[in-house]
């Protein structure tokens, strides 16, 4: 039975972790480029230089000393997000929705004192959320406001779109919707729903939750399919441009769609996960190999987006 499943998965072109690591990440992602994506501040700076839209950066805290100015520097903003520059998987992200008297308020309505915020930032600086526990920077940035299209299918939080870009060509996409279980975080490990998106049309297909296929949102029961992602061609182009930005051939691009600013680059990932295959109900290998078979890959992001739409049109 096991071996049978094995063969079926192989025939379906499902990519496993071992193959992803050895045949794609090690081959196309040079180690020296990792710092560009591991540090969100660097990514943000690069993106701004290249003219790629990102959430506006409000403040950066790098030392404990900086914390003395925390209240002062946060004063102009009532909505913001605090995150570690080296965090992974949405850990250490603190979203503030507004202010109430001396408190700042989280999306679920709980108020925090500035001291508590300061402790959170201090934790970030000490490296608790970074890989290997190395000291980190904390960044404060614009709080993205969800495009209304996602309102019926996301529980608090901000859904984000994961684009897998292989050698500059958008190859597969999914949107991650926060659930009650994920505590408003768009992280599949924490219980968010992943929904596959057709590359050519930007329309959602079906979902994956806890590694299992689902058709409806686990909290609201609404259908997850046939949502149309707004600004899809622009979003694809944004993803394709990240290839030039980083030089990473096997890249996960996380994009949020802001109500007013449109698609914004949130972060990049040099070792994107494989759940995107379950969300799309198809293996990555066929698409990756289709790109590898091409004689040449166009130089401009726009041409690559067109190429992707032709290659991955689903009939």
């Amino acid at each position: 039975m096991f071996f049978d499943t094995w063969l079926k998965l192989r025939n379906a072109g499902i990519l496993g972790l071992n193959a992803r690591n050895r045949e794609y990440i090690m081959r196309h992602n040079p180690r020296r480029r990792y710092p560009l994506v591991d540090d969100k501040l660097t990514t943000k700076r690069l993106a701004i230089e290249a003219g790629i839209a990102v959430p506006q950066l409000y403040a950066v805290f790098q030392t404990e000393h900086d914390l003395t100015k925390l209240a002062e520097r946060l004063a102009p903003y009532s909505e913001f997000v605090i995150k570690p520059a080296h965090g992974s998987g949405g850990s250490g992200v603190l979203v503030i929705d507004g202010r109430r008297k001396d408190l700042v308020v989280k999306p679920d309505g709980r108020g925090l004192t500035l001291d508590e915020v300061e402790f959170h930032v201090s934790n970030i600086l000490s490296g608790i959320y970074s890989l290997g526990g190395v000291p980190d920077d904390a960044m404060v940035e614009y709080r993205v406001r969800v495009d209304p299209i996602f309102d019926p299918v996301s529980y608090q939080g901000v859904p984000d779109i994961r684009l897998l870009v292989y050698r500059g060509v958008p190859t597969m996409a999914m949107v991650r919707l926060p659930t009650r279980q994920s505590d408003g975080k768009a992280n599949l490990h924490q219980g968010a729903v992943g929904v596959g998106i057709e590359i050519a049309t930007g329309r959602t297909t079906h979902g994956v939750w806890q590694n299992r296929s689902v058709a409806d949102h686990p909290d609201f029961g609404v259908s997850l399919s046939n949502l149309e992602i707004p600004n899809w061609p622009r979003l694809l182009e944004l993803g394709a441009r990240c290839y030039e930005l980083t030089g990473l051939g096997y890249l996960g691009v996380d994009i949020v769609i802001d109500r007013t600013h449109g698609p914004l680059l949130l972060e990049l990932n040099a070792r994107p996960g494989l759940a995107i295959q379950i969300a799309n109900g198809r293996g990555l290998r066929g698409r990756l190999e289709a790109i590898d078979r091409l004689d040449a890959i166009p130089d401009t992001p726009l041409e690559r987006v067109q190429l992707a739409c032709e290659l991955f049109r689903v009939h």
Binding site: F2, T5, W6, K8, L9, R10, A12, I14, G16, L17, N18, A19, R22, E23, N211, R212, S213, Q277, I278, G281, R282, G283
Partner: peptide, 20 residues
């Protein structure tokens, strides 16, 4: 180090995909 086959746990993880 050169093994690129599936991990047994992945067969479980992706089993839904095998059904299609």
């Amino acid at each position: 180090g050169a093994y690129t086959g599936y991990r047994l746990s992945e067969i479980l993880r992706f089993r839904d995909l095998a059904k299609r």
